[in-house]
Simulated scan of single mutants.
Amino acid sequence: MKHLPRPARRALLVVHVAVSVAWLGLSVGLLALGLAAYTTQDLSLTHAAYRAMKVFADWLLAPVALVTLGSGLVLSLGTPWGLARHHWVWIKFWITVATATATIFALRPEISHAAAAGVPDSSLVAAPAVSTSAYLFMTAISVLKPWGLTARGRRLRKSASRPAPRGSGATVGASSGKPVDAPSGRRPA
């Protein structure tokens, strides 16, 4: 995929960060409601908490998860970071796929079932606790960018740093003349 122009990349980055933070906040909210529903002795409070969780699950969970996944995918493919060049991006992608799938196909139906039954359910404490941990982990690796290049990223960097054969008309970098993964002096947005 061709790299995104800077204004588009920055706008998409804002969208991605906003929906990612919304997903984390939503998960923390579901954890608080799940804990309240599970630990109270008042069945009316349990039922109310699960009904509130159902509102969040029905209206917000799937759209937020899918926009997070889609914006992250477009950002990774449209920037020098790439999807499979750096371990942290690759790991974030697969954790996002797993959590979005679990959110849509397991958590939402479980919340609907609990809202209808109105009885305490420990899985509605465990699932938001796991998802909150996953989102915090992804936040940390987004900031720290650990583990370096993948094997694919090392191959791409190595092939981009080789000089182009004479007469081929090929350039090393797309527009700058430097290797694709070479540091530019600026951090990618």
Score class of each variant (00 low, 15 high):
residue 1 M to I: 10
residue 1 M to Y: 14
residue 4 L to N: 12
residue 6 R to V: 10
residue 9 R to W: 10
residue 10 R to C: 13
residue 10 R to N: 14
residue 13 L to N: 13
residue 17 V to D: 03
residue 20 S to G: 15
residue 22 A to Y: 05
residue 22 A to E: 07
residue 24 L to P: 07
residue 25 G to R: 12
residue 26 L to A: 05
residue 26 L to C: 03
residue 28 V to K: 04
residue 30 L to N: 11
residue 31 L to K: 00
residue 32 A to H: 06
residue 32 A to P: 01
residue 33 L to C: 02
residue 33 L to G: 04
residue 34 G to V: 04
residue 34 G to S: 02
residue 36 A to Y: 08
residue 40 T to D: 09
residue 42 D to F: 06
residue 43 L to Q: 13
residue 45 L to Q: 09
residue 45 L to V: 03
residue 46 T to Q: 10
residue 47 H to P: 14
residue 50 Y to A: 04
residue 51 R to W: 12
residue 54 K to G: 06
residue 57 A to C: 13
residue 60 L to D: 01
residue 60 L to R: 00
residue 62 A to H: 01
residue 64 V to D: 06
residue 65 A to C: 05
residue 65 A to K: 05
residue 66 L to C: 04
residue 67 V to S: 02
residue 71 S to G: 05
residue 71 S to Y: 01
residue 72 G to K: 00
residue 76 S to M: 04
residue 77 L to V: 00
residue 78 G to D: 04
residue 78 G to T: 00
residue 78 G to N: 02
residue 80 P to N: 13
residue 83 L to Q: 03
residue 84 A to G: 09
residue 85 R to C: 01
residue 86 H to G: 05
residue 87 H to W: 15
residue 88 W to N: 08
residue 89 V to H: 02
residue 90 W to P: 09
residue 91 I to S: 00
residue 92 K to I: 06
residue 93 F to M: 03
residue 93 F to Y: 02
residue 95 I to T: 00
residue 97 V to P: 03
residue 99 T to C: 13
residue 99 T to E: 14
residue 99 T to A: 14
residue 100 A to D: 04
residue 103 T to W: 13
residue 104 I to H: 02
residue 104 I to V: 03
residue 104 I to C: 08
residue 105 F to S: 13
residue 105 F to G: 13
residue 106 A to R: 10
residue 107 L to I: 07
residue 107 L to Q: 08
residue 108 R to F: 11
residue 109 P to M: 02
residue 111 I to D: 00
residue 111 I to W: 05
residue 111 I to V: 09
residue 111 I to S: 04
residue 113 H to E: 00
residue 116 A to S: 09
residue 117 A to G: 00
residue 120 P to V: 01
residue 121 D to N: 10
residue 122 S to M: 14
residue 123 S to Q: 14
residue 123 S to L: 13
residue 126 A to L: 11
residue 127 A to S: 07
residue 128 P to M: 02
residue 128 P to T: 01
residue 129 A to V: 11
residue 131 S to Q: 14
residue 131 S to V: 15
residue 132 T to E: 01
residue 132 T to Y: 01
residue 132 T to S: 01
residue 133 S to K: 12
residue 134 A to L: 15
residue 135 Y to C: 07
residue 136 L to E: 08
residue 138 M to R: 13
residue 139 T to G: 09
residue 139 T to D: 06
residue 139 T to S: 05
residue 140 A to T: 14
residue 140 A to H: 08
residue 141 I to Q: 08
residue 142 S to M: 02
residue 143 V to Y: 03
residue 143 V to T: 02
residue 143 V to D: 03
residue 144 L to V: 09
residue 146 P to Y: 00
residue 146 P to G: 01
residue 146 P to R: 04
residue 148 G to V: 04
residue 149 L to F: 00
residue 150 T to E: 09
residue 158 K to V: 07
residue 158 K to A: 14
residue 160 A to R: 11
residue 161 S to C: 03
residue 162 R to V: 15
residue 163 P to R: 05
residue 165 P to S: 07
residue 165 P to I: 05
residue 166 R to I: 05
residue 167 G to N: 03
residue 169 G to K: 02
residue 170 A to E: 11
residue 170 A to T: 03
residue 170 A to N: 10
residue 171 T to S: 13
residue 171 T to R: 12
residue 172 V to S: 15
residue 172 V to H: 08
residue 174 A to G: 11
residue 178 K to V: 11
residue 180 V to R: 11
residue 180 V to P: 06
residue 181 D to M: 15
residue 182 A to Q: 13
residue 182 A to Y: 06
residue 183 P to M: 12
residue 184 S to T: 11
residue 185 G to Y: 00
residue 187 R to W: 08
